[in-house]
């Protein structure tokens, strides 16, 4: 079990919400989606691969087979699903410091949500409602979300440059090349292994590698 794979951390938080208040949350999500400026804090944080909020109504949990007992739930639930870069502390703290009002807006109607400030009740709330990840696969363990964004920008710029530079004189080529470097000057970060943000997660990984090397 680990919530960490390379530079990514998987967080699943499922919190109860009174079924008759669900519509308020749906409305808030709708407004947030239609007004991107409400998410500019989240976007600027730039440590998120994906984040998604989903409302699961009381009768919305999957019922896969007739042998599965029917549930009678008191609450609807809000599932928050996120893949981000860095440690749990870094992520949760960044959220609280940077966008406390946004957090409160999304979670406000959830049962026993303590508000994001002060920090420790919020920490406890998230921890209490977090579902740990049993299996987590990351195809690009060295790529943070920023690395992906930079790589995409760099790739496209190179393709364009290549197409446009073929017939240029060497002076023009140099001027274009410098312009290219200028355009990409914030996208040259080296991509290497993640710093070890959790000694426990690191030890789990080391043990796994050791046991697999032995077999």
């Amino acid at each position: 079990m680990s919530n960490i794979a390379g530079k990514a951390y998987a967080m699943n938080v499922i919190t109860p919400i009174r079924w008759y208040k669900v519509w308020i949350n749906r409305l808030i999500f709708k407004i947030a989606l239609s007004k991107p400026s409400t998410l500019k804090g989240l976007v600027t944080l730039s440590l998120i691969h994906y984040a998604r909020w989903v409302i699961i109504p009381r009768d919305g949990f999957p019922h896969l087979d007739s042998s599965q007992p029917k549930e009678n739930l008191n609450y609807a639930y809000m599932l928050f699903f996120s893949n981000f870069n860095g440690s749990w502390d870094q992520y949760v703290d960044s959220f609280t410091f940077a966008i406390p009002a946004g957090l409160d807006l999304f979670w406000k109607w959830n049962v026993r949500y303590p508000k994001s400030v002060p920090l420790s009740p919020f920490h406890k709330y998230i921890r209490h409602n977090q579902i740990d990840t049993s299996h987590y696969y990351n195809a690009y363990p060295m790529a943070a979300s920023n690395d992906v964004k930079s790589a995409k920008k760099l790739k496209q710029a190179l393709i364009n440059f290549n197409a446009e530079s073929a017939s240029k004189t060497s002076e023009e080529f140099l001027a274009d090349y410098n312009r290219l470097l200028n355009y990409l000057q914030h996208d040259f970060g080296e991509m290497r292994a993640t710093p070890i943000v959790s000694l426990a997660a690191h030890a789990v990984k080391e043990r796994y590698l050791k046991s697999h090397a032995a077999h």
Binding site: N85, A144, N146, D147, G189, E190, M191, P195, V197
Partner: peptide, 19 residues
């Protein structure tokens, strides 16, 4: 520890990868 690890030995917050 955060400054030492994330801001000196790593640079994702600065969008500079592992520089």
């Amino acid at each position: 520890e955060f400054v030492q690890q994330q801001w000196i030995n790593y640079a994702n917050d600065f969008k500079e990868g592992n520089d």
